[in-house]
């Protein structure tokens, strides 16, 4: 364990850890990192605003991503449109329980969880709450890690489209929800990247 004698943050000491490479250094305005040359900030610039902007964009994209079909299948002349939740229900009815659970978690639960956690943390920064900061930080790290896993369904669509074209008997085409969904995952990831957990601790 690295010891800390006085409880002092880098900002209070007039220092800044570079956001890109982590190098600790004294911080002046308009300064660039001595090690990697990136612009030096004590906190990510416009972190709260950027996080909100990306999160709201993601929330808007979440609607068409779930309402429109993520893929259109044609099998022996019969057309079928599959939404994300429709695909989950189909998998469940075909007794593919583990896969149904994976898709449900990745496509429905994780995005909702991300919306919930990031907006709660942003509210917490705004209101100046300082309770349970350990849990809040850990929660954010978990959300940040599991976020990209939502892309599974997009990859499945890409693969099915590519595979079934060769099959001849049936065709699969990407639906309009596929890009909305991919955009939703990308914007939630950008929201998490813009978020600065140090702002939570500044309220302590």
């Amino acid at each position: 364990m690295a010891g800390h004698r006085q409880a002092l943050t880098a900002m209070q000491a007039g220092l800044a850890a570079c956001h890109v490479c982590g190098k600790l250094q004294s911080c002046r305005a308009d300064h660039h990192c001595v090690r990697c040359g990136s612009r030096l900030y004590q906190r990510k610039p416009f972190s709260v605003q950027r996080s909100w902007a990306f999160l709201i964009t993601a929330l808007i994209l979440y609607v068409p991503a779930n309402l429109y079909p993520i893929m259109n299948t044609t099998s022996l002349g019969v057309k079928d449109e599959n939404t994300i939740i429709g695909g989950v229900i189909l998998l469940w009815s075909m007794k593919s329980y583990p896969v149904a659970v994976i898709i449900f978690t990745a496509s429905i639960v994780i995005p909702l969880l991300k919306f919930l956690v990031i907006s709660l943390l942003l509210f917490s920064i705004w209101k100046g709450h300082s309770g349970k900061l350990n849990q809040q930080t850990r929660l954010f790290r978990i959300i940040e890690y599991i976020g990209p896993w939502s892309m599974i369904d997009v990859f499945v669509v890409i693969l099915l489209v590519a595979l079934i074209q060769f099959g001849g008997i049936a065709t699969v085409l990407p639906g309009s929800a596929a890009m909305a969904f991919a955009g939703m995952v990308i914007t939630t990831m950008l929201s998490a990247i813009s978020f600065d957990t140090r702002l939570l601790w500044d309220n302590e």
Binding site: A2, G3, T9, A13, A17, W201
Partner: peptide, 25 residues
Amino acid sequence: MLEHNLPIDDLVACHSCDLLHEKTA
């Protein structure tokens, strides 16, 4: 601004909460 009495290279700031720690090997 508070004072810290160690050289910068002996310190590390937590990337999650910004708290300064003295580096140990």
